[in-house]
Computed example of a mutant assay.
Amino acid sequence: MARAGITVDRLTRAAAELADREGLEAVTLSALARGFGVRDASLYAHVRSLRELRVRVALLGADEMTDRIGVAVAGRAGRDALVAFADAYRAYALDHPGRYAATQLRLEPEEAEELADAPGFRRSVELTYGMLRGYGLAEPDLTDAGRLLRSTFHGYVDLELRGAFGHPRAVADSWARSLGALHLLLENWPRAPSGEPAHRPPHERKNP
């Protein structure tokens, strides 16, 4: 029988808070059961496995992050949209490192479909492509540029979260200069040769 007061939403949010405090690897069913004052077995009335729980944290993080980015980029275009998008991305990752780490999990198609078809991840792609279309890009350049932005943003915040930037120059200043360089690159993006495929393979359509 499900323990009174525990719901899948409460369990997911408790897991997200634990991930932010102690890291995603600290999220276990045993740790959450202790937090709720129940036996581990009680949680299986709400989730089938630790993997499902972590996927739910990933979907929660994706929803929250894309909501923040969507608000930031509304009504903006070009450099303003790029900076707003990137700053919202970085701020969310720094504010919620555990949830952000969960969003980097690779979801199997059946997992995403079973858990509401991952609306946050879909909207992330839509926001990215919408911002890039402001630079006049079309496929396959949209996908190529989207991958560049994703790898740049993720690489930067991952290193920042790990404390890997040891130079005394302010990390925020380097971030701002990096965004300026990305803006110049996107304005002068080298168009793909004609004849390249314009569509991504089906297994790559969740994220750029």
Rank of each mutant, 00 (worst) to 15 (best):
L59S: 02
A192S: 15
I6T: 09
A138M: 08
H199Q: 14
A72M: 08
P109E: 00
T143V: 05
A15E: 03
P208L: 02
W189S: 08
E17A: 15
L32N: 04
H154V: 09
T66P: 06
R76N: 06
A77V: 10
Y135A: 01
G78L: 02
S124K: 04
S49Y: 10
V55A: 12
R177T: 12
Q104W: 09
E160P: 06
V171T: 14
A31Y: 07
R147M: 10
I6C: 04
H96C: 08
G195H: 09
R150T: 10
A33H: 07
H203Y: 14
V73C: 01
R200S: 08
S124M: 10
L107Q: 03
L32P: 02
D144H: 10
H203R: 13
R99G: 08
A93P: 09
L132G: 07
G134I: 00
L137F: 06
A4E: 13
T143E: 03
A91H: 09
D117V: 02
F36I: 11
I6E: 05
F36L: 11
R79V: 02
H199S: 13
R54N: 03
R56F: 04
F36S: 11
R51S: 10
L142C: 03
L32Q: 06
N207I: 05
D95I: 03
R147G: 06
V8D: 15
A181H: 14
G75V: 00
L149D: 00
A116K: 14
A33N: 10
A198K: 15
L159C: 12
L107D: 01
E22R: 15
G163I: 05
L137R: 00
A112Q: 02
Y129F: 14
V8E: 15
G134D: 11
G5W: 11
L11P: 05
R10F: 07
L186W: 01
A192F: 06
D158W: 11
P201N: 09
D40C: 02
V55S: 05
G5V: 11
R90F: 05
L59R: 09
R150Y: 05
L161D: 15
Y89L: 04
E196Q: 13
G78E: 11
A14S: 14
S194L: 14
F121H: 11
D80H: 13
M65W: 07
V57I: 12
W189V: 08
P201M: 04
R122E: 01
R76G: 02
D67P: 01
E204A: 13
D87A: 00
P202S: 03
L82V: 04
A181Y: 14
G35P: 00
H46A: 05
H167F: 13
G155E: 07
R13C: 02
L53W: 08
F36P: 00
V83S: 07
S124L: 01
A72V: 10
G78M: 08
R106S: 11
E114H: 10
L182V: 06
G166M: 03
E114G: 07
P208K: 03
L184N: 05
P97I: 01
S124V: 03
K206D: 01
L105I: 02
L11I: 00
F153D: 00
P202T: 05
V47L: 04
A45S: 15
R68E: 14
E52S: 09
D40Y: 11
V125K: 00
H203M: 04
A31V: 11
E204F: 08
A33V: 00
